[in-house]
Design a protein around this nucleic acid. Sequence first.
DNA 1: TAGATTGTTAATCGATTAACAATC
DNA 2: TAGATTGTTAATCGATTAACAATC
Lengths: 204, 204
Amino acid sequence: MASFTQTKRLLRYRMGLIRLKKMGLEKVFSYTLGKEVGVSAELVRKDFSAFGIKGHRRGGYEVDDLLSSLEKIFGKDRIQNVIVVGMGNMGRALSMYKGFREHNMNVVAGFDIDPAKLNKKFHIPVYSMESLGEVIEAFNVSVAVLAVPEVAAQETANQLVSHGISGILNLAPVLLKTPDHVLVNNVNLMVELERLMYHSGVIQ
Amino acid sequence: MASFTQTKRLLRYRMGLIRLKKMGLEKVFSYTLGKEVGVSAELVRKDFSAFGIKGHRRGGYEVDDLLSSLEKIFGKDRIQNVIVVGMGNMGRALSMYKGFREHNMNVVAGFDIDPAKLNKKFHIPVYSMESLGEVIEAFNVSVAVLAVPEVAAQETANQLVSHGISGILNLAPVLLKTPDHVLVNNVNLMVELERLMYHSGVIQ
DNA sequence: TAGATTGTTAATCGATTAACAATC
DNA sequence: TAGATTGTTAATCGATTAACAATC
C-alpha cells in the first residue's frame, strides 16, 4: 500500500498522463512526466518501480500501460459512489463538479437538514438526514464529502460513521473525532488561502 | 520565516484557539491545544518557541497571548483583499464563503469570460477579464483564487501574473507554469477524494 | 557501438518524536 | 517542596535526491 503522499503523486501522474495522451503522446520518459506534474524524474521512476510498473531501458514508459496500471491501482474500472452532506454553497458546487463524473466518481445524493433544500432544484436528489442509512445502503456508499458548517461537523460525522461510512472528505475547519477504522481527509480552503498570503510575501 | 508545513499548523492553532476561547478557556497547555488540532504537544511547543512565543513553566500558555502573536504573524490586523477568477460553481461558492470574511479576508470581486455572468446576480461585483488590471490596482490585490476549467487555467494564470498577482490558489488540476516570484498553492479536490477512497480501503 | 534512459542502492535532507534539564 | 509543564537538544524516521550500474 502506498503512503498518503505517494498516492497523491500517483493520482497526479494519472491526470498528467491523460493530458499527455490527449496531446498524442504514446510513450513518455520519467523526465517528461515529472515535468508535467511537478515531480523529479527519479521519484517518478521510484514510484512506478514500487508498483512493479516497468519501462523500457531506452524508450521510456508506454502511456497506455501506465494508465491501465494506475486505473487498476485506483479501482477506476468501476464507478465509485459518493454522497455529499451539507448542500450549502460548497456542497452544491462539489455535487455539480463534472470532473468527478469523468473520473468515475458518482455523486448519488446530497443531504441537508434544511427542509427548503429538499426539493428538486438540484441535479441530484437531496434528502433529509433521516434517509442517510437507506441511501448509503442502496448505493453501497462508503465515502462521503462533509460540507456542513463548522459547528455541525462533528455531530454529522458521527451520523455518517454510525451508518457505516469509512472515509470522510472534511471541508470544515475542525479536527473530527472518529474511530480508528474511519479515515478523514481534511481540506481547509481558508488555511490554504491564508498560507498562500503569508508565503507569497503579502504579509510583513 | 516558517516552512510551508509549519504555517499550516500555526493557522490551525489559531482556529483551535478561537474555538477554545469561545468555550471560555483562558490558558491552554501544549497538550490540550495539540489534541484540539491534531498535533503532538512537543511540536506545539517547538512551533511557538520558534516564533519566540513564551509560555509559563507550570501554567501553560495564555490564549490571548497566543492569539495576538498569531494574528501578528499572519497580518490579521488589516483586511486582506482577494479576487476570485472563474465564477463557475466552485468560484461562486468560494466567493460566498463566510469564513473568509470572519478571518479578515475580503473577496472584492469575481471575474469570468462568460458575459452572462457579468450581471448583478451575485453578492460581489463580477467583471470581465478586461477589468483585471484595474481592480487589482484599485484594491491592492496580490492573491487570487483560480477556479477556471482545466483548459483555461494556464492562460488565465498568465494574465494574473502579468497584472502583478504574486500568489495563486489553484483549484484546477494542472501544474501552472509561473515565474519564480509567484507562489502557487494547488488544491485538487478530486485527488483528495480519490486518495481517500484508496486509503479508506474501498478499493481492492 | 555509443548514448540515453531505466531501476536501484546509498546519501542527504527535513520534519517529527523522544528525552530530559530547567523552573514555576 | 514535589509535581507538572515548558523549552531545547539529541535521536529517529520517512521521504527525496544523488549516484551509478544495468541495458536497450
